[in-house]
Design a binder for these strands. Structure first.
Length: 426
DNA sequence: TCTGGGGTCCTAGGACCC
DNA sequence: TCTGGGGTCCTAGGACCC
């Protein structure tokens, strides 16, 4: 038997976080919205039963909210991030080797536990529940791709009691014959369509697909998926968090941006936020891309999408440098009359690439030190951290901010803001 | 008339993930 | 009227070099 891998995945994570601090949310339908209160990004089981889909826009299920008393909440990433850390701390007690794959999923290496690995997996699940209040499911299998699938089975089928073991071939075969191919990790809508065209409907069929055919339908990625489904390990548990390669700040605007100035204002705000994020991570960027586009959902409005990339020399995390570079991008990318070119832009963003640690910033031959800028950035961050974001902004960002994030139904930051910690009266 | 070939690097775009 | 945001990886094709 190959060394078992577990995937522990939190159930309806954001909803579960909210329920830990507000028990009135238990047993009723709950939906957590994306940034800007646009779409559903987490749903309780009760909300799923009512037919609310992942990423479904709020305006499409307003009637259900009214008719069924669905509790709708803005997302509270500060809370979820902190709860995630607590879950990982609990998981870490069960194996020295694990990989935090996303905010609500962790792969755990269960080799070295002999035949006690299943006990280990179910103890891990109950301990997370006990220490954090978060319910989870666990999938155990010889490869990551199979562990994801076992986890899916554990979530969908109550007979597994929250832990599904694919190291038992009978269980694995039974499930794989019944799970649709599109549920496999790495098989999205495009690949699913191609697979269905050649008659592949279930996971078992994909597992038994000849490698040459897998390569023809997809790429090396699909070959790797097929191998992993056969129990051949291609993906390792990566304990070290790799240096991130890019970073982005992008937003849909609250109201359409029709003029050059409106787009510039949003991009300035995003560039400011992006530079701040870089400094928080101790990084500098070598490249910045600015994009803005109209709403792809509008059937009638004329569509336009623009983007420009420029290199940052020297590499930087300075707010003023970033705004300057981003402005140049907007100027180059803007088409037509600046007072309005007939397009209603719905979204804009700033994407940073070529990230390296600030300490490793290469020195340019003729670069001169700018210590005052560095001190100014430190002071700017200190003021905004202490008194709240956007207390000091660069003037071009403006005061009327249609691109501002909406979060009208956000819960308190129970665990990270002293002023929002729950008070117990006894 | 016949008009190289092989290598690297970079970028844009697609696909996928949570 | 209102439709998320932030990531990664792979491939194809162009530019460039010798």
């Amino acid at each position: 038997m190959p060394d078992p891998i577990a995937l522990i995945d939190c159930n309806n994570f954001y909803v579960s976080c909210e329920r830990v601090f507000d028990p009135k949310l238990i047993g009723v339908p709950v939906v957590v919205l994306s940034n800007n209160d646009g779409c559903a990004v987490a749903r309780s089981e009760e909300a799923k039963v009512l037919g609310i889909k992942m990423a479904q826009p709020l305006f499409q299920f307003r009637d259900k909210v009214r008719d069924h008393g669905i509790r709708v909440m803005s997302s509270n990433y500060t809370l979820y991030g902190d709860m995630s850390r607590r879950v990982v701390d609990a998981v870490g007690q069960f194996s020295p080797s694990f990989e935090v794959y996303s905010i609500d999923e962790t792969f755990v290496d269960l080799s070295g536990f002999g035949d006690r690995y299943l006990k280990q997996a179910s103890d891990m699940r109950s301990t997370v529940r006990e220490l954090t209040g978060i319910p989870t499911c666990v999938g155990v299998a010889p490869t990551k791709t199979l562990a994801k699938l076992a986890n899916y089975a554990a979530k969908k089928n109550p007979i597994f009691g929250g832990v599904c073991d694919f190291t038992d071939a009978r269980v694995a075969d039974w499930c794989m014959a019944r799970i649709a191919v599109g549920e496999v990790w790495g098989v999205g809508a495009a690949t699913e369509g191609k697979l269905r065209n050649i008659g592949i409907e279930t996971v078992s069929q994909l597992r038994d697909l000849p490698m040459s055919l897998a390569r023809k339908v997809g790429t090396v990625v699909l070959e790797r998926i097929v191998a992993e489904l056969q129990g051949v390990r291609c993906l390792d548990i990566e304990e070290v968090v790799p240096q991130r390669k890019g970073m982005a700040v992008t937003r849909s605007a609250g109201e359409p941006m029709r003029t050059f100035d409106a787009v510039m204002q949003a991009v300035t705000a995003h560039a400011t936020q992006a530079a701040y994020k870089l400094r928080q991570h101790g990084l500098v960027a070598g490249q910045v891309t600015v994009f803005f586009h109209t709403s792809p959902f509008s059937k009638t409005a004329p569509q336009h999408s623009a983007s420009r990339t420029i290199h940052l020399k020297p590499m930087t995390n300075n707010t003023f440098d970033m705004i300057h570079a981003a402005s140049l991008c907007v100027q180059k990318a803007w088409k037509g009359d600046r007072r309005g070119n007939g397009y209603a832009y719905a979204k804009a963003g700033v994407i940073l690439d070529d990230l390296i640690r600030e300490a490793d910033t290469p020195q340019l031959l003729f670069e001169f030190e700018r210590p005052r800028d560095a001190r100014l950035m430190t002071a700017l961050d200190a003021v905004n951290d202490r008194f709240g974001k956007k207390k000091i902004v660069v003037a071009s960002e403006g005061f009327h901010r249609p691109f501002e994030v909406k979060a009208e139904m956000r819960s308190p930051r129970y665990t990270t803001r002293i002023s929002e910690v729950p008070v117990i009266k006894a």
